Simulated scan of single mutants.
Amino acid sequence: MNTNMTRFFYQSTIGLPVDAIDLYQWLTHITEADYQGFSPAHRAIGLCQKEDGESMINVESIGGNLLVQHYTIVQKERQVLKLISPRTDAYLFHLLKVHVGVEWTMSIGYQDATSCEFTCEIGVSYPSALLAIAAQLVAGHYFIRRHLQEEAPQFAQDIEQKFRSVPPPPSP
């Protein structure tokens, strides 16, 4: 993935201890209805097994642009989840197809005995300086930031709700 990446963050508190949450389990049990409920921009989601590991396809419309993200799950731990889509199909204004790189990382960290800090990060890399400038000119970063601020609190709320009823794992 390109090191020249623009990153966007969202952080909030989840009212559960770190050990009560398994981000990988949460992600792999998201239904399409769940995904569509997190944001009106979400169109479809699908998980599958490939020779090189697990993958996910997300389809969403952000700022008038349709994105088809072909993620590979590269880190799948209870507290850290990282997905990479090196060639996301981005249809600018639903017409012109370009490719961008996308990284999506979610993590939880210790806050105190009864809560944890949830972080959702999106990174976008552009194949050329011209496309990066164009993204800024058409307010692409604004729409990505706005989308993250919309979906990430819904992720945190869903994680808390789903793991609130699950007993914590036994201590080692």
Rank of each mutant, 00 (worst) to 15 (best):
M56R: 12
I62D: 06
P86N: 06
D34F: 02
T28R: 15
D19M: 12
A33E: 15
T88M: 04
Q25C: 09
Y71S: 01
G63Y: 00
L66N: 06
I84T: 04
R78A: 12
L95A: 13
I57Q: 05
I84D: 05
Q49W: 12
Q36V: 10
K82E: 12
C48D: 08
L81Q: 09
G123A: 06
Q79G: 10
T105R: 15
A90L: 14
G46R: 14
G101F: 01
T28G: 09
F8L: 08
P127E: 07
M56L: 12
H42Q: 15
V80M: 13
L81R: 03
Q11K: 13
S128G: 07
A44N: 15
E54I: 10
D112K: 04
V80H: 10
F8R: 01
Y126K: 04
C120L: 08
L92P: 02
T119F: 02
T13I: 12
K82L: 11
N58H: 14
G46Y: 04
I73R: 08
M106R: 12
Y35T: 00
I122M: 07
G109V: 05
H29L: 09
L81K: 01
E60T: 07
A41N: 11
G64Y: 02
T72P: 02
L130T: 08
T31W: 06
D112C: 04
G101V: 06
V74C: 10
I14W: 01
I108K: 00
I30R: 13
G109S: 13
Q111K: 15
Q79L: 11
E103Y: 02
G37Q: 13
Q11R: 11
Y91N: 07
L96D: 10
H99R: 10
E103A: 11
F93A: 14
E121Q: 15
D112L: 01
V102N: 03
W26T: 01
L47G: 11
H42I: 06
H29S: 14
Q25N: 11
G37H: 14
G46N: 11
Y35W: 15
D34Y: 04
D22N: 14
E117F: 03
P86S: 06
E103C: 10
S12T: 14
R43P: 02
I108E: 00
I108M: 03
T105G: 05
V124R: 00
N65A: 15
A41R: 13
